[in-house]
């Protein structure tokens, strides 16, 4: 009989092989299975045309997902003002492009959304308000102001060149908008995984009080996550406005939930302190591939929520179960 030795501080030993690799490989395996299943059920699925469409469809929402990942990692719960900031970007770029030109209008749109995100960040990070109710209220206000600005109607654009540029293809294959999206993902990933801000974000999300005690600017890190989400949503709205050449106030409806879905399916915990941009990207890819298969099979848009809802529950339930197994609860 040996006396029980207290487990070493590293948790890997405590965790079973399954829980260790399950958490990391589950998503790539899921994507792979989806790709195979898609190829089996529809011969249109594995074509360059179709997969490019999937990428284009995920670009707009994907840019927001990068910001939302930071919100999740810093334990900021979620940013529900996304539809408003998307609309601000879209409405402003189209509303102003005839008078000041598309690029200055785009800058104004992004800046306006950034201001909204900054206010969110200040209220949540510095004033310590609850993120859910704050972004709910600020979203209502921001969307209202944007509508006052354009008179509460649909705005149409007139710059088809910009539209053609964004949807046009580099080397004849990859659309420009997809390249922009991938660039945002790479930058977001590098910031979260390699920079000081990224390390601070994980620290703030896993233990705010200890992090504050070790001289990390907790409030600023929290605020920056919301500033980023606001800015990126505005940017995404600008791109959406230019590609569609039309924007209505409800243009971003549902984007907040789509972004949260992607982040959650990507295994980023709502409790903060874990998850990466790449996994959130993987979550988005998984959801988009599934949606694409359903569209190819002729499932109408609305009932697709059945699958999305089940997917969120499945992803989080597995995550929670694995954590409990790993003794990390």
């Amino acid at each position: 009989m040996t006396t029980p030795v207290p487990p070493p501080p590293g948790r890997t030993i405590n965790r079973g092989l399954f829980s260790h690799y399950g958490a990391r490989l589950g998503l790539p395996a899921g994507i792979l299975v989806t790709l195979i299943a898609g190829a089996l059920v529809s011969d249109r699925f594995l074509t360059v045309q179709n997969l490019t469409n999937v990428l284009i469809n995920m670009s707009i929402i994907g840019i927001i997902v990068v910001g939302m990942t930071f919100v999740f990692v810093t334990r900021g719960l979620a940013d529900l003002s996304v539809p408003a900031t998307v609309a601000v970007g879209g409405l402003l770029v189209l509303g102003l492009e005839s008078s000041i030109g598309t690029i200055p209008a785009a800058i104004v749109g992004v800046l306006a959304a950034a201001i909204a995100g900054g206010i969110n960040g200040w209220l949540i990070g510095y004033a310590g308000l609850n993120p859910v109710i704050t972004t709910l209220a600020s979203g209502t206000i921001v969307l209202g102001i944007a509508q006052v600005f354009v008179g509460g109607v649909i705005v149409y654009g007139d710059n088809t060149e910009a539209q053609a540029f964004l949807t046009g293809r580099v080397f004849g294959v990859v659309p420009v908008i997809v390249l922009i999206f991938l660039a945002v993902v790479v930058i977001g990933h590098l910031v979260l995984s390699r920079s000081m801000l990224g390390r601070w974000s994980y620290a703030v999300g896993s233990n705010p009080s200890a992090t504050g005690a070790s001289a990390v600017p907790v409030k600023r890190v929290r605020a920056i996550a919301f500033l980023m989400t606001g800015t990126l949503s505005g940017f995404s709205g600008v791109l959406l406005g230019i590609t569609l050449q039309t924007a209505r106030p409800g243009i971003g409806t549902g984007y907040e939930f789509d972004a949260i879905t992607a982040v959650v399916v990507g295994g980023v915990s709502l409790l903060g302190g874990s998850g990466t941009v790449l996994y959130a990207f993987g979550g988005l890819l998984f959801v988009q591939l599934l949606t694409n298969i359903m569209v190819l099979l002729g499932v109408p848009t609305e009932p697709q929520g059945l699958v999305k809802g089940a997917l969120i529950v499945g992803a989080v339930a597995i995550d929670v179960a694995l954590r409990r197994r790993g003794g990390r609860e």
Binding site: T261, G305, G309, A310, V313
Partner: peptide, 11 residues
């Protein structure tokens, strides 16, 4: 938040 978001989409 996530659970009722999922059930909201589902219902």
């Amino acid at each position: 938040l996530v659970a009722t978001l999922a059930s909201m989409l589902f219902f």
